[in-house]
Write a protein that binds this DNA or RNA. Structure first.
Length: 248
DNA sequence: AAGCTATGCAACCGCTGCCCG
DNA sequence: CCGGGCAGCGGTTGCATAGCT
């Protein structure tokens, strides 16, 4: 079949050294991003292009905001995840300075547990029937409990391994599926949303973030890639989105 | 203090879809 | 139109370390 994306022999792997980082930074500063395949050789790095791209995007880029996520960021991630599912790059795109990897890690290590502790199923953002319902609508995160704490294994257990049969529908999140067949609840919750009860005011109109003329080619590409292909199975009209629990 | 366990994060892997010849 | 190469994405792994016994 296809040859590997990069020659694995002779390439460094694992953690990046400061020298490697500097080489990559220097190269991109002078030549800019792009053509990742040729960057390692040009920059004198014994890494595959993929690895360089990842290192730059997730760690070295100057506009990366590091440190803890704020409450508003947390809130936004949860809400966007309810809408978009595991489309981390799209979610990260709404969080300036955050990378998809960072958002994904934060979700898996913090937010998923938080939702579970609140009695909310992180997969579909609905109250879990098994766990006790939180008393208040802003159920305080009960982090002290340990019975449902997600160890790495627990988290993994909630997500069955992708069956690689090439079926692209597996990229559509459970949330999206849930949105389709949960109309009776959405009728109620949508009312709450339209009454403006959401505590955070963020433009969640994913479908049209900017006029086409003002958009980057990257954004256009993303749009084609993600929404063009899946909109019929996810959401086409944001105004028709059912409101999930956290939007109340 | 040492050993063990849980957690967080960086990096890797494999798949997908776009682009171009 | 088709196939190969590439970038990008999401899932997963593995290491470092904090916390606990």
């Amino acid at each position: 079949m296809r040859k590997p994306c990069c020659d694995k022999q002779g390439n460094n792997r694992g953690a990046w050294s400061a020298q490697e980082d500097q080489k990559l930074i220097d190269y991109i500063k002078t030549h800019g991003e792009g053509c990742w395949r040729s960057i390692p050789e040009a920059a004198g790095l014994h890494r595959c292009g993929k690895s360089c791209r990842l290192r730059w995007i997730n760690y070295l880029r100057p506009d990366i905001k590091r440190g803890n996520f704020g409450h508003d960021e947390e809130d936004l991630i949860i809400k966007l995840h309810a809408l978009l599912g595991n489309r981390w790059s799209l979610i990260a795109g709404r969080l300036p300075g955050r990378t998809d990897n960072e958002v994904k890690n934060y979700w898996n290590s913090h937010l998923q547990k938080k939702l579970i502790n609140m009695g909310i199923d992180p997969n579909n953002h609905r109250l879990n029937q098994i766990l006790p319902r939180p008393r208040a609508e802003h159920a305080a995160p009960v982090m002290a409990t340990s019975t449902t704490t997600g160890s790495k294994n627990n988290v993994a257990a909630t997500k069955p391994k992708k069956i690689s049969n090439g079926d692209s529908t597996d990229r559509v999140s459970d949330t999206a599926t849930c949105l389709e067949d949960e109309n009776e609840e959405s009728m109620v919750t949508q009312q709450a949303a339209t009454s403006g009860s959401s505590s955070i005011h963020i433009d969640l109109n994913i479908a049209a973030p900017a006029p086409p003329g003002q958009r980057t080619t990257f954004e256009n590409k993303q749009e084609n890639c993600k929404w063009g292909k899946t909109s019929n199975t996810v959401v086409t009209d944001p105004s028709s989105l059912p409101t999930l629990l956290l939007f109340r």
